[in-house]
């Protein structure tokens, strides 16, 4: 698919991509440095997940880094990238030239979505690798081949790797949900900023409502509700309930918003 090749090419060649990834990567690195220097972990039950655990085992730090970037940094970057997808081309005037080249509208949408997800994957990979290196160097490793779960029992290295991939897949799905909302808005409004801000507004509203007892009736359907459920993958035994609910909920958001975005883009007049 030509459009996809071109999109991916532009993604990896764009300076913005790498600057964004660098900035996202910076936060967990700062956290690791602070932890190593002060040796003060959050009290049990507070602060980002895994942070108490990483003080004794640096190899867990990639998961802590994931828990640090997933609630805010990564979704903002995804909202900006996906919000820019169609509205950015429209604002620049390049959308009409893509469409008359011709690049089919469905193909363009798919290429943009895959490119955003490639960006997420790239970011997660960079964050995970940096966090692993930083974690091992600054925080050290525990006894060889053994990792402690959130529940306090031990995991073998094989189990650990399997669960880490599951956690990454879950994070990817959550970001696909964000990307779907942003992509939908990107086909509706003419300004990339509007699409990105609209998506962030949805996420902020969702986060806020989750803290409100009065919003209990809707809380199970809010997009950010199960984002951190990947932590449950590191309990012993795995606590599947929220992971499964989160997967279904995100799948629902993806289907609804991608469907709406596609339908809107297919029938829309391109007048920019």
């Amino acid at each position: 698919m030509r459009a996809l090749t071109v999109e991916l090419h532009q993604l990896v060649r764009s300076r913005r991509t790498w600057v964004t990834i660098l900035l996202i990567d910076l936060l967990p690195t700062i956290v690791a440095v602070l932890l190593a220097v002060t040796d003060i972990g959050p009290r049990p039950g507070t602060g980002p997940a895994f942070l108490s655990a990483v003080l004794t085992d640096g190899t867990l730090f990639p998961l802590a880094a994931l828990a640090i970037v997933l609630p805010l940094f990564l979704p903002i970057a995804v909202a900006v990238q996906a919000g820019d997808a169609i509205a950015g081309e429209a604002q620049q005037g390049t959308l009409r030239y893509l469409l008359v080249r011709p690049v089919g509208r469905t193909r363009l949408l798919v290429a943009k979505l895959v490119s955003v997800m490639a960006f997420v994957l790239l970011t997660l990979a960079v964050v995970a690798v940096t966090a692993y290196v930083v974690g091992v160097l600054l925080l050290g490793t525990s006894d060889a081949g053994q990792t402690t779960t959130v529940s306090g029992t031990s995991l073998t290295q094989g189990q650990m790797i399997g669960r880490t991939f599951l956690a990454l897949a879950f994070a990817l799905l959550c970001m696909l949900g964000v990307a779907s909302i942003a992509l939908f808005l990107s086909t509706v409004v003419d300004s990339p900023l509007g699409a990105a801000l609209g998506t962030m507004a949805v996420l902020v509203a969702s986060t806020l409502l989750l803290t409100l007892d009065a919003a209990d009736v809707v809380s199970d359907y809010l997009p950010t509700r199960y984002w951190l459920a990947f932590i449950d993958l590191f309990r012993d035994p795995i606590h599947w309930r929220d992971v499964i609910r989160g997967t279904l909920l995100q799948a629902g958001y993806v289907v609804v918003f991608l469907g709406a975005g596609w339908a809107n883009f297919m029938t829309r007049d391109v007048t920019q």
Binding site: V100, P102, D269
Partner: peptide, 9 residues
């Protein structure tokens, strides 16, 4: 022109 090119329906 946009209708001829399929940009506007």
């Amino acid at each position: 022109v946009r209708m001829l090119l399929g940009l506007v329906l």
